[in-house]
């Protein structure tokens, strides 16, 4: 028989985040983003909207970008997750992070973690995207400050750095 957790009961979730295994008991309704922020204290991932539109909460789950506000924590059981906090290696910034800084691709910084994680996925899928492909790949991430041009430049720059 399958496993049933009744209302009010918690379910064990075991998940590897940025290389570390965590085990928590959570309510099945808990969203992955709240799990990351409130249970694990990884507040780098942000919440920007209620409707799966803005992409501020984008993380990489099992190699693919997802909006962590639209995934239940229990759905991530057993998953391998990468958040913005796990991108820099040994305090060396990832080329995407460096490119965002070098191209003035952020202003208030709130959309930045999601924007960077989505860029990470986009460049994994397509290491040399055209401008149109960048726009198509990142339109699920809303920025209210930059007008996007510097973000597009940063993505191109990062792609170049990662290829070389």
């Amino acid at each position: 028989m399958g496993v049933l957790a009744n209302k009010g009961e918690k379910v064990k979730v075991r998940v590897r985040v940025n290389g570390v295994w965590y085990e928590r008991y959570v309510s099945p309704r808990m969203l992955l983003v709240d799990f990351l922020r409130d249970e694990l204290g990884l507040t780098g991932t942000k919440v920007g909207c209620d409707t799966t539109t803005c992409g501020a909460c984008t993380v990489i789950m099992n190699g693919r970008s997802v909006k962590s506000c639209t995934v239940l924590a229990v759905q991530a059981n057993g998953a391998d997750i990468l958040t913005i906090e796990g991108l820099a290696q040994d305090s060396k910034l990832h080329p995407i992070q460096q490119a965002f800084m070098d191209n003035f691709a952020l202003q208030c910084g709130y959309c930045t973690p999601g924007m960077i994680m989505q860029t990470y996925f986009l460049l994994k899928e397509n290491p040399n995207p055209t401008e149109e492909e960048i726009r198509d790949g990142l339109h699920g991430n809303i920025c209210r400050c930059t007008g996007y041009q510097n973000i597009i430049n940063a993505v191109k720059d990062a792609a170049g750095r990662m290829r070389s």
Binding site: R37, G41, L42, T43, G44, T45, K46, V47, T83, I84, E85, L87, A88, L93, Q97, F100, M101, D102, F104, L106, G109, Y110, T112, P113, I116
Partner: peptide
Amino acid sequence: KRLYDEKFVTGKSTYVDDIS
């Protein structure tokens, strides 16, 4: 270059909801 970007690109920014 902006002087305080690093915390924003590494997820270490602290907005009000990030305060523990």
